[in-house]
C-alpha cells in the first residue's frame, strides 16, 4: 500500500510519515505544491497540519483542493488538513474558544471506522489555534471534546476523514490504532 503525506508545514509531518513507515506502508512526504498528476499511483493521502490560518490563507495550502477534488481514494486531513477540508466543502473554521497545546479527553461519538475497537473516551494531544465551527453538509462528526465540538469528522459520500487532534504524537493514546484503522478503510475502499 502506498500512502503519501502532504506537507502543509506542520511541526509533526515527519511523525505522520514515521508512523506510516512503522505500519509498513510505502510512504513519503511530498510538498503541497506537487501537482496531483505527479503524485503517481497512490492508495491514500494524509494532509498534514500546518501553520496557515486556512480560512484566510487557503493559498498557502497549495494543491490540497486539487487532491481532494481528484482523489478517488481515501484522504485523512489532520489539524490544518481538517480545517482545509471543512472550508473546501462549505463548512467554516475560526479561532478556537480556547487555543490548545495540551492533552484533552476525547469522546467518541461514532465508534466505527477510524475509532473501531477503541474505547469510547481516551486522551489525545491537541495543538491548534483554530477549529471547525460549522461542519460541511454531507459530513458527520465522529468525536468531540469538552473544548472542541468537532474533533473528528468524515464525509458521508466519499472516503474523506479529518481529525483535529494529532494521532501521530506519542501523547495521543491509541494514535497508532487510529492510523491502522485508516489503513483498514483504505483496504476496504479498494475492494
Amino acid at each position: 500500500m502506498r500512502v503519501f503525506v502532504v506537507d502543509n508545514g506542520g511541526q509533526w509531518t515527519h511523525r505522520e510519515w514515521r508512523v506510516l513507515k512503522y505500519l509498513q506502508v510505502e510512504t513519503k512526504i511530498v510538498p503541497n505544491t506537487t501537482p496531483f498528476d505527479q503524485l503517481g499511483q497512490v492508495d491514500a493521502l494524509v494532509l498534514s497540519g500546518g501553520a496557515p490560518d486556512v480560512a484566510s490563507e487557503a493559498g498557502r495550502m497549495g494543491n490540497n483542493g486539487e487532491y481532494i477534488d481528484k482523489a478517488d481514494f481515501p484522504i485523512l486531513g489532520i489539524c490544518a488538513g481538517m480545517h482545509f477540508m471543512a472550508n473546501h466543502f462549505g463548512g467554516s473554521t475560526g479561532p478556537a474558544i480556547r487555543a490548545e497545546f495540551s492533552k484533552t479527553r476525547l469522546y467518541v461519538d461514532e465508534a466505527d471506522g477510524l475509532f473501531a475497537g477503541l474505547p469510547k473516551e481516551f486522551d489525545v494531544w491537541e495543538s491548534h489555534n483554530d477549529e471547525v465551527k460549522n461542519v460541511p453538509e454531507r459530513f458527520e462528526v465522529l468525536a468531540h471534546s469538552n473544548t472542541c465540538k468537532v474533533e473528528a469528522m468524515r464525509s458521508i459520500k466519499r472516503p474523506l476523514y479529518a481529525l483535529q487532534f494529532h494521532p501521530e504524537v506519542e501523547n495521543t493514546d491509541f494514535g497508532m490504532d487510529i492510523f491502522r484503522n485508516f489503513l483498514k478503510q483504505v483496504e476496504e475502499w479498494q475492494k
Binding site: G65, E66, I68, D69, K70, H88, F89, K157, R158
Partner: peptide, 9 residues
C-alpha cells in the same frame, strides 16, 4: 461529479 470537483477542475 460533486459541484466541488467540477468547479475546481
Amino acid at each position: 461529479d460533486d459541484m466541488e470537483q467540477a468547479l475546481g477542475r
